[in-house]
């Protein structure tokens, strides 16, 4: 492995992590502004022009918050938990290509870390499946019954909805005939999979919202019942890390949805100006993020038993049905 290649990888990784971190900061502002508009309010508009410095102000405030560790907490795991929560959110984008291959200064560059590996989709599922640990550990290590309840809820919820999530991925995988993210994007050159897989897309969206603990599935941190759930005992930067993980996961899920179902970086005139690719992807991601905020502004939280019943009795059978239908159609049409 040459040094130039290594450097390229380091830069790419840094860029992807910066997308999540910078995106996280401004996603909080975006969410608050959109949410405010939907409630006919204005939202934060004081810090800087149009409130653009609000994330900075929030960050400064959180840094100077007092870091508390409860008496009953398990100190090691209590400190470790926020870190464990953030890592999956940061690494999950590694298999998502941000744009088509371009040739610059006689070298070919790919906007993405490992979009060509043949288990790309499985990688996403694997990272999503270990994302629950941070929350569980946080809930347990806090030594607080509300936090523990949040942790227990999140385990049950994420394990249940992971199945539906995986089944929703099966549709695009079958259509593309590959688990590589690159192949899935290539397969959408003419028609986005959201049109071929409307049910799959719907299942993915629902399962993904549950997987990232967003409203209306934000059971692990249901304020009215659990104070703040798993992060009830956290303050300062440790709390900020949970916040970062949550919003990082939102961004990651939007990237994944855009890539798996909305054609990723594909769009018109891409072959003439390949640099349009990241812009198309950005637009799709922002649209999906808007949708996530929109959902939060609209729907009340599910009751816990309703959530589990919905996941196992409706979403999972629907996912299986979708796989069967897709398979039958592929066989009939001949792929």
């Amino acid at each position: 492995m040459s040094w130039a290649l290594l450097l390229e990888w380091v830069i790419k990784s840094a860029v992807i992590i910066m997308i999540i971190l910078g995106g996280f900061a401004y996603l909080t502002l975006f969410e608050r502004r959109v949410l405010a508009r939907m409630q006919t309010r204005i939202g934060p508009n004081r810090a800087g022009p149009w409130g653009l410095l609000q994330p900075v102000a929030d960050g400064i405030k959180l840094i100077f918050n007092e870091e508390l560790i409860p008496e009953q907490a398990d100190r090691v795991l209590f400190i470790l938990a926020p870190v464990i929560t953030v890592v999956p959110a940061l690494i999950i984008l590694a298999v998502i290509p941000l744009g088509p291959e371009v040739t610059l200064f006689g070298r070919r560059y790919v906007f993405g870390l490992a979009s060509n590996i043949n288990v790309g989709v499985l990688y996403i599922l694997a990272v999503a499946s270990i994302a629950v640990y941070g929350i569980v550990i946080a809930g347990w290590a806090s030594g607080n019954k509300y936090a523990l309840m949040g942790g227990v809820r999140s385990t049950a919820q994420m394990v249940s909805y992971e199945l539906a999530l995986a089944l929703a991925f099966v549709g695009p995988i079958m259509l593309a005939g590959s688990m590589s993210v690159d192949a899935i994007i290539e397969g959408q050159t003419h028609l986005w999979y959201v049109i071929l897989q409307p049910l799959g897309f719907l299942i993915f969206l629902i399962a993904a919202v549950a997987e990232i603990n967003r409203a209306p599935f934000d059971m692990p941190e249901a304020e009215q019942e659990l104070v703040a759930g798993y992060h009830a005992e956290y303050s300062g930067m440790k709390f900020a890390l949970f916040f970062m993980a949550e919003y990082g996961k939102m961004i990651a899920v939007s990237f994944i949805a855009a890539t798996m179902f909305l054609g990723g970086y594909l769009g018109p005139f891409l072959d003439r100006w390949p640099l349009l690719g990241p812009i198309y992807l950005f637009i799709k991601v922002v649209a999906l993020l808007f949708f996530l905020v929109w959902l939060r502004a609209t729907f009340p939280r599910f009751r816990y038993d309703q959530l589990m019943a919905f996941g196992w009795k409706i979403l999972l059978p629907l996912g299986l049905l979708n796989v069967v239908i897709t398979g039958v159609i592929i066989v009939l049409v001949g792929g």
Partner: peptide, 19 residues
């Protein structure tokens, strides 16, 4: 009904804020 709910929140984005 869910779509109607979504439409309600979306529509209220274009109302004058009461702030």
């Amino acid at each position: 009904e869910m779509l109607r709910g979504l439409w309600t929140t979306f529509r209220s984005m274009f109302e004058t804020p009461v702030t």
